[in-house]
Design a protein around this nucleic acid. Structure first.
Lengths: 337, 337
DNA sequence: GTGAAAGCGCTAACAT
DNA sequence: ATGTTAGCGCTTTCAC
């Protein structure tokens, strides 16, 4: 049986409350008593119970981050941004996966009020759940959708505009048959990126498939597969705009296997500008944004937490690299001449 | 104020205990009552308090995974392996970062007994802490070190043997001046990989630096930097064995920038065989192992949890690709002829 | 089948 | 400066 505050009190010969005060550094307790208590706690290898503490204080001092897939290259900086702010408020951060639907760890952690605030990026957490659990003691920030309600904030990057600029750039370079390599159709950001793609295409009167045929899961493998599918269908575009970088990288691989040159035959542009984008060959043009900022700002929302949910949209910036070429006819960078 | 079980009881016109039984599906409660309780809970938007539940049941039904840096490419599969097993026991999984020393989220979560089991991979959690907190109600598995005690298990991959085989392979291919690109010297796995490297070098009477000069942090950037340093020191090896793939990829970049050919001028071998290794150019030879298995086995240890800590070592397998060449003098694969 | 009541390990108001 | 005490919101034993 692990030692409780009671055991410590008995061993130190003081009252339970004295132990509590002493261990929490209250100035009301004399140094002498504090030492005695500390020694007793040490001797018993006493660890306070977080559960009891949370129950009593009615808060957990914990922020939860809920993602569908942990471990992607995308999340590293996002988490850093969150971590930094969470730590500055002297809170803890736990991350949990939304994978597995209703019974996922994320759902359970969320439902059981284990956290005092939640940052959600993962479409398997439905809007309806978010709306029912959000409240004064559990503000929520969503990063991958637009959702407005009391204590529900939305912080996101400008997917639509970013996609628009990327595709416009391809068009400016002379590309005409531009395909969209879709991520999950249920994903809000994917829809927005598709919308930006459509706006650019429409503006220039270019034809495109209005509906998404093949959808990927934002992974390199599904990007590869979707591209293979396109190639097998004998529809060779002169450019591909992928819903994210991982899918773009998968597409590049499929194109290279088909002995197509990038960017000469097909230009490829991704989204997110992950670290990898700059060192794959050819280096990938991508719509960039600061994931650190995204995380940091989202977390600030949580602690600030006014009742009226805000909606913040962060800008994107196109990182132009070799994969989209520098003009239609010759694929060589002019600076290389 | 959020509704508690008391509010539900009052609204449903039953006793608190009845609500508890009803909501937890006890067969002792009539269907009629269950319906009434469910309706009341629904109406009040009642969410049970995890803290109260944990306090009463003296367990959290949660497993914690503690890593120093979330989001690396390495962790994705590891987490899947863990997640799968955790879910099969109907437990939750939370992930927390060990970054930040004593005040990191990981430390606090561990100290406050928020989890019923812990999987630790991150050298910022000291052995001494692990030894004091481990116990019957908190078994621990460490993945990145050898540590034996009651309720402390160690599951790891055979770093030493894997490194030995990788370096032996390089030697077999005719490489002689093989440098070790070190990760953090405090990391146990790094030390083991260095040891395997030394064993292979010693066995063939090859000279090498006995001490680690430059150390990286297992990141692409630090691999790049260390390699730059080596090159600046005018010490051109004919092969580099990197402590992990990310560092190897960084080294490749540095070598390519110096206009050196891989593998003709310098062969490069990494460790971990991350997904990326197979599609960087040149494809990276790497010591592979199953991270999914690692995670799954570690988690099984937690639930099995006999007092005597076990020590499990998983095998590695060298994935041979272009970056190490196929012989010393010609760099072309024989199969290509 | 349902209710009353004890108590999990803490914190904090209040008393001394 | 220290002790007493009343809960926090649940689960579970026991009584009816």
């Amino acid at each position: 049986m692990a030692a409780t505050i009671k055991d410590v009190a008995k061993l130190a010969g003081v009252a339970i409350s004295t132990v509590s005060y002493a261990l929490n550094g209250s100035p009301k307790i004399s140094d002498e008593t504090k030492r005695r208590v500390a020694r007793a706690a040490e001797e018993l290898n006493y660890r306070p119970s977080g559960a009891a503490r949370n129950l009593k204080k009615r808060k957990s001092e914990t922020i939860g981050l809920f993602l569908n897939a942990l471990g992607g290259p995308f999340y590293s900086q996002l988490i850093e941004g969150i971590q930094e702010v969470v730590a500055s408020y002297d809170y803890k951060l736990i991350v949990s996966s939304t994978y597995g639907g209703e019974n996922s760890s994320a759902h359970r952690v969320l439902r059981e009020k284990f956290v005092d605030g939640a940052i959600i990026m993962g479409f398997d957490i439905r809007d309806s759940l978010i709306l029912t659990i959000a409240g004064k003691s559990l503000p929520i920030v969503v990063l991958d959708r637009e959702l407005n309600a009391d204590y529900v904030h939305s912080v996101r990057i400008d997917d639509e505009q970013g996609a628009y600029e990327a595709v416009s750039h391809l068009i400016k370079l002379g590309r005409r048959k531009i395909d969209f390599l879709s991520g999950p159709v249920v994903a809000y950001d994917n829809a927005k990126r598709f919308a930006g793609y459509r706006r650019a295409m429409d503006e220039h009167g270019l034809p495109y498939a209005r509906t998404i045929k093949a959808q990927g899961r934002y992974t390199e493998t599904t990007g590869y597969q979707s591209m293979k599918l396109m190639l097998a269908a004998n529809r060779l575009p002169d450019a591909v705009f992928a819903a994210n970088d991982e899918m773009a990288i998968g597409a590049v691989r499929a194109l290279q296997e088909a002995n197509l040159s990038i960017p000469d035959d097909v230009a490829v542009v991704g989204f997110d500008n992950i670290h990898q984008a700059s060192y794959v060959r050819p280096a990938l043009t991508s719509v960039g944004h600061s994931r650190y900022e995204l995380g940091a700002i989202a977390t600030q929302c949580l602690f600030h937490s006014p009742r009226e949910g805000q909606s913040i949209v962060l800008p994107t910036e196109l990182a132009i690299r070799q994969s989209c070429g520098f003009g239609r006819t010759d694929g060589s960078p002019s600076a290389n001449a």
